[in-house]
Design a binder for these strands. Sequence first.
DNA 1: GCTCTATGGATTGTTGACAATACCTTCATT
DNA 2: AATGAAGGTATTGTCAACAATCCATAGAGC
Lengths: 215, 215
Amino acid sequence: MSEAAIQTYTRADEAFDCLQTAIVKGDLAPGEKIGEVELCSRFNLTRGPLREALGRLESRGLLVRRPHAGVKVVSVSAEELMELYRIRETMEGLAARQAAERMTDEEIADLQATLDTHERMIEQAQGQAYYQAEGDYDFHHRIATGSRNAKLAQMLLGDLYYMVRMYRYRLSTSSGRPHMALGEHRRIAEAIAQRDGELAEFLMKRHINAARRNI
Amino acid sequence: MSEAAIQTYTRADEAFDCLQTAIVKGDLAPGEKIGEVELCSRFNLTRGPLREALGRLESRGLLVRRPHAGVKVVSVSAEELMELYRIRETMEGLAARQAAERMTDEEIADLQATLDTHERMIEQAQGQAYYQAEGDYDFHHRIATGSRNAKLAQMLLGDLYYMVRMYRYRLSTSSGRPHMALGEHRRIAEAIAQRDGELAEFLMKRHINAARRNI
DNA sequence: GCTCTATGGATTGTTGACAATACCTTCATT
DNA sequence: AATGAAGGTATTGTCAACAATCCATAGAGC
């Protein structure tokens, strides 16, 4: 049987996804005060599911909501992005360490194979930052899930990454340095393959620290 | 003027708080499938605000919701609590380091004064774990906010602490060891007062690690 | 006797209308 | 002229009814 992607998709989920991508991509300016009815007409929704989605978004810190006053997208600053990277540094360090201890051999092989395809992509589209960003996301995604720590993965994948992507869109901070990042990814994967959790943690922290300084 | 505690409190907020405390305190059993109408009659609400609150709770990982099938409280295990403590260890370590660098002298004085009152409370109610738990919460709360890292504080205070408290209620894991914890708190505060971020981080990590092993 | 299917009931998801609150405009007063 | 207050309007918060989906039970077929 197929994996049943027909997992019933409620309107509220749809609203949540639409809003989230709209916020992350910058279609909704920060500080912009938007009415609910306008959002409804914009995404073909009714206010019930929309409000549910707004609650979820607020809980995740992507927008703020004052009672009877409306909702507005969170404003961003470079300092806050820095703080976000500090959090990522420690949390992904932990994820890398646990991944080194817990990923299956098959997963590790997949991880390294993924890096090969990333390398080919970078070679093909020379300097195209887009593939690099996707590949970067993919790499960190696999390690987060590989940590076998449900809450950690949820925090990284569900909260932090969206925030980081939003900030990067807003501040137009392209990740740049594709080759260097790939090399660092390689070394991290190598450490994981050797089941050296301490080294994997150290390398991951340094990797994210370097990315932060690159901003 | 007073700080305006009359901050308008919407029904959805009320529902959110009620549900959250009910889940944390264990009034709603884990795995229990509860109907929306039952919840409404239980907390004197209507389904609109309730659904909004349910969305927020789901987003925070306190309950799971399958479309058209109902909601149920998350089931818990000792392993997951361990994982939670691992996350706390790294994140609160970071918080302690940043707090050492950023708290004002006044905040540090307040922090140490708080520890004095904790000590008196422990002496008075000998062995009473309740005050210790409250004091513990208070201490970590101050450090999280003192880190001047909004997202970090949000993650710790808004997500992790509720989860930890829920698990502790479920597994009836009283924190125990009040005197030892107080001493560790004292040393952490001392390191912060000396602006020694590295030491504060190290001590905090060890403190939480000890608490984890105590389970 | 066991399994698969179909129908009924109950619960969730959604919708539109109603009520309450905050913001903005206008007017009066200093 | 500037500031304050008061009212109107628009927007948000809330409610109750409608529609869609799933689970359980009962029945038939193998």
